[in-house]
C-alpha cells in the first residue's frame, strides 16, 4: 500500500488512542478557580484529538480515491539504507551512555559513511567493514588520547607557570585542534595513494571522515561549550 494511504489510517488510530488518553487525564480545574469556570485539563486535548480524527478520516477517503499518479517504484536498496540509518540512530541513543561519546559517535559515522558509499549492502561486505571499523577505532582513540594529553598538559602548565592564556579555552581547545589538523593532513598525504588505488578506498574515507567529525564535535561541544559528553569506555 502506498504511504499516502497508510498515513491517514495510522493517524486515525493515533487520534483514537489520543482521545482515549485525554479522557483518562485527571480532570482538575485551575488553582483558585472556586466556581469551576476553567474548561479544565482535558478540554484542549479532547478538542485537538477530535480535529486530528476528523482530518484523518477525511484524508483516508480522499487518498483512497486519488489515482496513484506520483507513485514511484520502490528502490529496495534505498529502503534498506533508510531502515539501517534509523536503526543505527536508535543504537546510538541506546548505547551512548555505555560506549561514551567518542566510540559511539565514531561507530555511528563510520558505519553510515561506509554503507552510503557501498550503497548495495551485501553480507560479503562484513569482513571489510569489521576490519575497517576496528582499525579506525584504534586510530580514533589514539587521536583522542593525543588531544586529551595536550589539553591537560597545557592546563597543568598554565597552572604551574601562572600564564592564564594556557588555561584558557583558546589554548586547551585550539592547540589540540591545530595539532590534530596537522596530523590529519600528514596522514592524508601519506595515505593518498592507497586511498586512490581502490581496494580500501571506502573504509579509508569512512574512517578518516568519522575521526575528523568526531574530534571536531568533541572540541566544539566538550572543550569550548563544556557540555558533559559521556566518557563511557574511553574513561581517560
Amino acid at each position: 500500500m502506498h504511504i499516502k494511504r497508510v498515513i491517514p489510517i495510522v493517524f486515525i488510530i493515533i487520534a483514537l488512542l489520543y482521545i482515549i488518553f485525554s479522557f483518562t487525564v485527571e480532570e482538575r480545574k485551575m488553582i483558585g478557580d472556586v466556581r469551576g469556570w476553567d474548561p479544565g485539563s482535558r478540554a484542549m486535548p479532547i478538542g485537538i484529538g477530535l480535529i486530528i480524527l476528523a482530518a484523518s478520516i477525511y484524508l483516508s477517503f480522499k487518498e483512497k480515491k486519488a489515482p496513484d499518479q506520483d507513485k514511484k517504484p520502490h528502490d529496495p536498496g534505498i529502503r534498506k539504507l533508510t531502515i539501517l540509518t534509523i536503526l543505527l540512530c536508535i543504537f546510538f541513543i541506546l548505547f551512548f551512555r555505555f560506549l561514551g561519546f567518542i566510540i559511539s559517535t565514531h561507530i555511528f559515522l563510520f558505519s553510515l559513511i561506509f554503507l552510503y558509499y557501498k550503497r548495495d549492502i551485501r553480507q560479503s561486505l562484513i569482513p571489510e567493514f569489521s576490519i575497517g571499523l576496528l582499525t579506525c577505532t584504534g586510530v580514533m582513540i589514539t587521536f583522542y588520547s593525543i588531544g586529551r594529553f595536550i589539553s591537560r598538559y597545557l592546563f597543568l602548565l598554565g597552572r604551574k607557570s601562572e600564564i592564564p592564556v594556557l588555561k584558557s579555552k583558546l589554548a586547551t581547545a585550539g592547540a589540540p585542534l591545530v595539532i590534530l589538523v596537522i596530523l590529519f593532513t600528514v596522514f592524508l598525504i601519506i595515505l593518498k595513494n592507497p586511498i586512490k588505488r581502490g581496494k580500501y578506498r571506502v573504509p579509508f574515507i569512512a574512517g578518516f571522515s568519522s575521526i575528523g567529525i568526531t574530534e571536531f564535535l568533541y572540541i566544539v561541544f566538550k572543550q569550548i561549550f563544556l557540555v558533559s559528553l559521556v566518557k563511557g569506555l574511553v574513561f581517560w
Binding site: 540512530c89 559517535t105 555511528f108 559515522l109 559513511i113 552510503y116 574515507i205 571522515s209 567529525i213 564535535l217
Partner: peptide, 8 residues
C-alpha cells in the same frame, strides 16, 4: 559524508 554529518 554530508547526511551522516547532519544526523550526528
Amino acid at each position: 559524508v554530508l547526511i551522516p554529518t547532519i544526523l550526528i
